[in-house]
């Protein structure tokens, strides 16, 4: 098994942490992982990308480019950037953050590039604001990915996330678990 995931976010939204969390989740499943990001000297707010390589075999390839099987867009505005299609293939699944329904989104001329794509939507911003208390859409979108990809059962995913989040106060952990559970239910 080989799985490539690319995250699109803005610096500061937690894509790197999200990518590392996914790597951690998959490593617990006995997979080999690589989580990294590509960013320059830009500061908070700049669009950036993070990557996950997941494999049954040790990962020796340190080049940055991948052909992603999944695109996770955690900033609602980045979905309108056609660059999210770069290096994808026909089976690539797109899980994007938006307050719109899939139909509403696809009806927008700025989202024309997503027509015919394997698209899933979830309002990770709203979920995180309501359940975690701040706009930190990385864990909800990760949960949505787990739901769609079925790479690991929701239960063991949440168990691993509890360990990863254990350095935070209980309130934050509970909020995140709630947000992730909800994202898994709401992603369409």
């Amino acid at each position: 098994m080989q799985l490539y995931v690319r995250w699109h976010s803005r610096a500061g939204q937690g894509a790197v942490t999200g990518a590392k969390a996914l790597a951690e989740v998959m490593s617990q499943q006995g997979k080999y992982v690589q989580a990294y990001s590509v960013y320059g000297a830009e500061k908070r707010g700049a669009p950036m990308m993070a990557f996950d390589k997941i494999s049954d075999e040790p990962i020796n390839d340190h080049s940055k480019g991948i052909n992603p099987d999944y695109i996770l867009v955690i900033d609602p505005s980045l979905v309108f950037n056609p660059e999210i299609l770069n290096d994808t293939h026909e089976n690539t699944k797109f899980i994007v953050t938006t307050h719109m329904s899939k139909e509403e989104l696809l009806a927008m001329p700025q989202a024309a590039h997503l027509k015919g794509k394997n698209l899933f939507v979830v309002d990770a911003i709203k979920i995180s604001q309501e359940d975690i208390g701040r706009a930190m859409p990385n864990t909800p979108i990760l949960a949505a990915f787990i739901k769609i990809s079925e790479v690991v059962s929701p239960e063991s995913f949440l168990d691993t996330m509890k360990v990863i989040l254990s350095k935070f106060p209980q309130k934050i952990i509970d909020g995140n678990i709630k947000a992730m559970t909800r994202a898994m239910e709401e992603v369409k």
Partner: peptide
């Protein structure tokens, strides 16, 4: 270790 390629790349 290589900057970013190793330093900022999480692996097992």
């Amino acid at each position: 270790q290589d900057g970013f390629l190793v330093s900022h790349t999480a692996q097992i």
